[in-house]
């Protein structure tokens, strides 16, 4: 009996949490299209997510591009040349590595800080204070953050694409001693719009996942410092897992459907 009781409670709590998250998401999306809009808040978030995440995203995609060039060379050693290396670098960076790397790095950076900031605001009653000052907290706090995530992640990934391909190029030219012109021409001919577009679409989805989870966990945190800590962990872990799952699903949709 105790087992059934526990199972029932688990299922009930799971459904409750899913429902709450669904409502929160639906409300956020609805408020994106209803005034008032807080442009100043949006601008702050755009800078916070876009500009300040640039160094981390640039570094991770650079090294990702470099290591792919190196591994492809070893893997294709029998017929290694400019062709396969530049193609593999191009495809893996634009389709998978840049979006996933940028997504995971931003989840760690932005997801965590949003959860901690909103969590602290919840615990110190600042979110309640917004309501008493006739300001809808979801419109004022959540919508700008989520919008900024959806808009800035593709920009970051586009920059990551360029830097990652440059990383591959650097290894190809200076370590593997390929011909620079051939490598660049190859890269240019293999480049397909779909590779870039799929990567950027993924980025927008990841941006949404990161910010909505960071906001949801922070907004609903309870119980002081410990609650804020738990919210931060949940935000980063759940966003990272969902990024990898959705990355697979989107790849399937784009290239296998």
């Amino acid at each position: 009996m105790k087992f059934i009781d526990l199972l029932g409670r688990f299922v009930f709590n799971f459904l409750l949490a899913t429902g709450r998250f669904g409502l929160f998401t639906a409300q956020t999306i609805r408020y994106m299209f209803t005034p008032p809009f807080y442009y100043k808040q949006l601008l702050t978030q755009l800078i916070e997510i876009g500009f300040y995440s640039l160094p981390v995203v640039a570094l991770t995609t650079l090294f990702a591009g470099m290591v792919i060039a190196l591994q492809t060379y070893t893997g294709f050693s029998q017929f290694s040349s400019e062709g396969p290396v530049s193609l593999v670098v191009l495809i893996s960076v634009t389709r998978e590595l840049a979006p996933v790397m940028a997504g995971l790095m931003v989840a760690g950076r932005i997801g965590a800080s949003m959860a901690a900031e909103l969590g602290t605001m919840r615990v110190t009653e600042q979110i309640d204070a917004l309501s008493t000052l006739s300001t809808n907290p979801i419109k004022y706090l959540i919508v700008p953050r989520v919008l900024a995530g959806i808009l800035m992640l593709p920009v970051l990934v586009l920059i990551g694409d360029i830097i990652g391909i440059c990383g591959g190029y650097l290894i190809g030219i200076y370590k593997l001693e390929f011909n620079a012109t051939t490598y660049l021409v190859n890269t240019w001919t293999y480049l397909k719009t779909m590779d870039i577009v799929s990567g950027l679409t993924k980025a927008a989805v990841f941006g949404f996942i990161i910010t909505i989870l960071g906001c949801y966990n922070g907004y609903n945190s309870k119980g002081g410092a410990q609650g804020v800590g738990a919210a931060t962990t949940n935000a980063v872990v759940s966003a990272s897992i969902l990024i990898l799952i959705f990355n697979y699903i989107l790849t399937e949709l784009f290239f296998n459907a």
């Binding site: 605001m121 110190t124 009653e125 600042q126 309640d128 204070a129 917004l130 309501s131 008493t132 000052l133 006739s134 809808n136």
Partner: peptide, 19 residues
């Protein structure tokens, strides 16, 4: 609700100032 809230002011326990 926002209209009703405009009639009210609240001093929170920890002041709840936006930092």
């Amino acid at each position: 609700r926002e209209k009703v809230n405009a009639k009210m002011g609240m001093l929170f326990q920890g002041a709840a100032l936006f930092d």
